[in-house]
Write a protein that binds this DNA or RNA. Structure first.
Lengths: 235, 235
DNA sequence: GGCGTTATTATACATATGTATATATATTAG
DNA sequence: CTAATATATATACATATGTATAATAACGCC
């Protein structure tokens, strides 16, 4: 509800999530009663219900319908069940977030530390209480298979984008990089894990978490560079 | 149910979790009807219900009572609510797991790679389908505050034990270590995050995940050692 | 106006849940 | 045996859920 910096709630429904209903058939402009509510309204209502104490997988159909101001049965006009809505939301959340982080990353390429900038953009989303992050951070481990799969897929997208970015930077700065796909996966999972931790803590604790996260990522980067230089084994 | 290697189910109820009921007052050996069921039986019944598609926070009181073969109301004789049972289970799971991992770690000190041994012990637990790991891996982000707090607390214990171990090893092998508390936190979170990912994948995928995890941890270790040697900044 | 079409709602039902209250059962002390 | 006591169950109630069926309402078109 609060429109804090980098608000992305206006993006709800504007992204093609690849999970759409049959096409609205634009040839025939209209026939029959007009829909008073849209898929996007329902998704927004559901999103509004999730929070620190409510996960999407525990939302009931009636609850969402109530929040959207429609009769329970009207839900079925838009989604087959709550799970389908949840998967669609996850996809949107992933796309929106990747866009934001991607922007932060490219914007920071010339400027300060790429690591620091990306992480701060991420945590800023956290602070702004964007529900999107809740979805990706805390709901990847519970819920239906379809749901968990959707979250995992989005995480993999993050990994892939980060991976190409890391390789590009490695070439550009002529630093070596050992197994970039493992590096990007480690960084992604670490950021999401620490983000989930941060979400359960008061905002005063965030700076320290950010600082630790930056240090962790630096260790991984230096590690991969060192391993690229000398392929020794050590522990 | 299956008693695979390193079965820890016999530990149910044998550990003091610090969440116990009022003392049974051993002075007076008994008075009144004997309890046909124990707290531990209830916990075992609940544990038996969790699995890849069921998280503990979604178990209902009646469901657990049914699985334990008692009337719903009898539940209250042992726990105030499901949440209290869940927290107790989390504590037991954490203690049991720390013991197993700790053994693997100390046992491996003289032998091969400490990193590899610990991670393999961890993943072996996963493979053996010990429900304990389910609790710690996938349920830390949803559920009541008490529940999430309990999981977080157990994770912190893991971090602390790993931290002292890392410092001991650093001294012993005369390798530097930069900010060991951050290192141990990164490793812990990474292992748990990758473990959660592995749990949703077929067993054939586990070896690759293990290999990646080992590489990730090596990167962190080499990173912290390198940073201890030269406190430069890089990215 | 009426008609087809679509969206929405009303009502209803079977089922599940947490828990309050009352009752039954087993056990020990006297 | 009886009383006391701890434990377990039976019954019941208010409430919530998913969804089936039927009715209602708005829209474009003839």
């Amino acid at each position: 509800m609060t429109s804090t910096p980098k608000d992305v709630s206006h993006l709800v429904g504007t992204l093609d999530t690849g999970t759409d209903q049959p096409p609205p058939d634009r040839a025939r402009p209209h026939v029959g009663r007009r829909a008073v509510i849209s898929r996007e309204d329902l998704m927004a209502a559901a999103l509004q219900l999730v929070g620190p104490h409510r996960s999407i997988s525990t939302l009931s159909l009636r609850e969402i319908a109530r929040a959207a101001g429609i009769a329970p049965n009207s839900f079925y006009r838009h989604f087959r069940d709550v799970d389908e809505l949840a998967v669609t939301l996850i996809n949107q959340a992933g796309e929106a977030l990747r866009q934001i982080i991607g922007e932060a990353r490219t914007r920071a390429v010339a400027e300060r530390s790429v690591v620091q900038s990306s992480i701060e953009a991420f945590m800023e989303q956290l602070r702004a209480d964007q529900k999107y992050l809740h979805l990706l951070l805390r709901e990847g481990t519970v819920g239906s298979d379809a749901f968990k799969g959707a979250v995992e897929r989005q995480l993999c997208f993050f990994e892939e984008e980060l991976c190409t970015d890391l390789q590009r930077l490695a070439v550009q700065r002529d630093t070596g990089i050992y197994r970039p796909e493992v590096v990007s996966r480690a960084i992604t999972r670490l950021v999401f894990a620490m983000g989930a931790k941060a979400m359960d803590q008061p905002e005063e604790a965030h700076p320290e978490i950010i600082e630790q996260l930056v240090t962790m990522v630096r260790m991984i980067i230096i590690g991969t560079q060192t391993m690229a230089a000398r392929p020794a084994r050590d522990d």
